[in-house]
Design a protein around this nucleic acid. Structure first.
Lengths: 194, 194
DNA sequence: GTCTATATAATGATAGAC
DNA sequence: GTCTATCATTATATAGAC
């Protein structure tokens, strides 16, 4: 693996462990066993490292939401999808721990994040259109219903890990499952099958 | 006002504007027009400033949830309560922007936050028991129903502002109202009155 | 209580030899 | 590509005069 990718690997590990603010470029270099000067040959600055790690997350999200064409998704698929996102966000856990601060500090990162997240939600949202068309969700009188269900599920998908952390709860399969169940619970009144 | 409180006022303003990491004790002293040495006469260190500001938030929350005795709350009261929490969290907006990072960095702050938040949720949760007893929520077959509704509403109450920020949406009354409406939407299927 | 002056350490980043 | 050496800057924090 090339040095640039190794820098990202190491930085991600340290950021997840100690937070990106507490981890200096010197720490990263030391953890890799290279000199600080060498690190700066491969990256311009610390912000670039953070942005590159974010791009890795974005790639993971792209794969996450690239669903097979023409297949009608079920609510179980949705639950599985959210579980996968929990895994992704655990892998990049420093991101949502510091997200609002990070994008406030770096306008370039902010616009990029907002753009990618927006696209991600659009894809996620499509699942719910699929549910409605497949008759999995009952036809509602309120046209905003599907939109709102998607927004709530998305919120759980994004903020369940941070919620567990500020509750003092361990991030383990049982506690993650609680988030999935919360999501299924809020879909319950609108489901035809369940 | 005494100097300690003025330090907290100034620090809160700067933290909200630039993030607590970017603001040094020197910045705070300068913004107040006192010397760095003088600031350290009044506080031991920066962590103490952050903890003291958190205590202010906790006090605001205490007042927030101290409801008049024996009065049966309505769903409108709940909506109003959540709006007030949005105002509180706006006043202390650096807190939820950095919350997971801050409590990871300061174990003392972490245990205190978890404790206060737990108590806060218990009070919030009581509202929902009140709803159930008053017949505002339909009697559900699932005993966990009330708990889950409270958890979802609490999540909106906590994370709606961060959600707006990472969506690139301005924090204004209309966008805040959207959060309230999301909450009312998820209560809808369980309401008897609506 | 408030100031000036300062100690100490760490940060991000660069220059130039190899 | 990698190193050593180093810089300028900033951060937290303290000592001691007033």
């Amino acid at each position: 693996m090339n040095t640039f990718e190794r820098i990202l690997d190491t930085a991600l590990e340290l950021f997840n462990r100690s937070g990106s603010e507490a981890v200096s470029t010197n720490h990263i270099a030391e953890a890799m066993g290279i000199s600080p000067g060498n690190l700066y040959y491969h990256v311009h600055n610390k912000d670039e490292i953070i942005r590159a790690i974010f791009e890795r997350l974005f790639t993971a999200w792209d794969t996450w939401l690239s669903l097979p064409e023409g297949v009608v998704p079920t609510v179980d698929d949705l639950a599985g999808l959210v579980r996968v996102n929990f895994e992704i966000l655990w892998q990049f856990r420093f991101v949502y721990r510091e997200l609002n601060a990070l994008i406030q500090h770096d306008p370039q990162l902010k616009s990029r994040f907002i753009q990618v997240r927006q696209r991600g939600f659009a894809g996620f949202r499509q699942l719910f259109d699929g549910f409605a068309q497949a008759g999995i969700l009952r036809p509602g009188s309120d046209p905003q219903e599907v939109q709102r269900l998607a927004e709530m599920c998305w919120m759980i998908s994004e903020f369940w890990l941070p919620t567990l952390e500020i509750s003092g709860q361990e991030i383990n399969p049982a506690h993650l499952q609680h988030g999935v169940e919360l999501m299924l619970f809020l879909l319950q009144p609108y489901r035809v099958d369940g």
